[in-house]
Computed example of a mutant assay.
Amino acid sequence: MSVQQIIVFITAFFLALMAGVFYAYSCSVNPGLNKLQASDYLRTMQVINRAILNPFFLLPFVTTVVLLPLSAWLAYHGGMSVQFYLFLAAALVYAIGAFGVTIMGNVPLNKMLDKADLTSVDVEQLRVSFEIPWNKLHTIRTVSIVVSLGLVLVGLVKRES
């Protein structure tokens, strides 16, 4: 196995992990949280947002934003190829739609919620101001990661120069 193949394999593996996390969250966690009362919902989101900041999530999430452009660069081979364009598109979709949306959208919402004292705020209003934008942004992230993974997988089977 070449260095390029190893890097692309790790990239695809990390993308698959991220797609699984975000897809599963959309299909199970969000619908479950939706059924909670506002105070329980907000408290649970505070706990989840703190718990997700761990190496098992952060390593593939952050590393993928570097590995995707690296995979595109390695696929370049001194000329443009279908694989190069697919990996480049995957890198852009992930960097903007997953990583960028998280950093610019979800993280500020998480920080706002983390600072909230749930005993002294209107929890119904806080829930609306947090949940609606957070879920919209999460949908963008999920779709972006799944699209990025699809582009990489197509790139792996479409190796023409």
Rank of each mutant, 00 (worst) to 15 (best):
A19S: 15
F57E: 09
D122M: 01
V157P: 01
V21E: 01
L118D: 10
L42N: 10
W134E: 01
F9T: 10
P69A: 10
L68F: 09
I145E: 13
A98K: 02
A12L: 12
A90E: 05
V8K: 15
P108N: 06
V143W: 06
G32M: 05
Q83T: 15
L53S: 04
R43S: 15
S148I: 00
F13I: 11
K35M: 08
T64R: 11
F9P: 07
V62T: 14
F56D: 04
A24C: 05
A12W: 00
I7C: 08
I103K: 06
A24E: 02
T119V: 05
M112L: 08
G79D: 06
F99W: 08
F99P: 10
V147R: 07
F87H: 11
S26E: 06
Q125S: 14
M18Y: 02
K136F: 14
K115F: 01
W73H: 12
F22W: 09
T11S: 15
V29S: 06
K115R: 15
M18R: 04
A19N: 03
Y41E: 06
T11D: 13
V82L: 12
V21K: 09
F99I: 08
V154K: 01
T142H: 11
V128I: 13
V8T: 14
L149H: 07
A116Q: 11
A116N: 08
T64Q: 10
Y25L: 04
F56M: 11
V3P: 00
P31I: 03
K35F: 01
V93S: 03
A16L: 13
L113R: 02
R50V: 06
S144C: 08
T142P: 03
I48M: 11
N110C: 07
A116H: 00
G79W: 00
V101M: 03
L153R: 09
F99E: 05
V147E: 02
G20W: 05
F56A: 13
L74P: 14
V128E: 10
D40P: 06
S71W: 07
F61V: 06
E160L: 12
N135H: 07
K158A: 15
Y85E: 09
Y23S: 11
N54D: 12
T63E: 04
L86N: 09
H138G: 08
K115N: 04
P69S: 08
L151G: 09
V123K: 11
F84A: 14
S81V: 05
L15S: 15
R159I: 00
Q37A: 14
L113H: 00
F9N: 03
A16I: 02
P69I: 04
K111I: 11
I96A: 03
A90H: 12
L153K: 05
T142A: 14
G78S: 05
V82K: 07
A24M: 05
V47G: 03
F22E: 10
V62R: 00
S26P: 00
V107A: 09
M80P: 08
V93I: 15
L118N: 11
L156N: 13
L17E: 04
N106Q: 12
V147M: 07
Y85N: 12
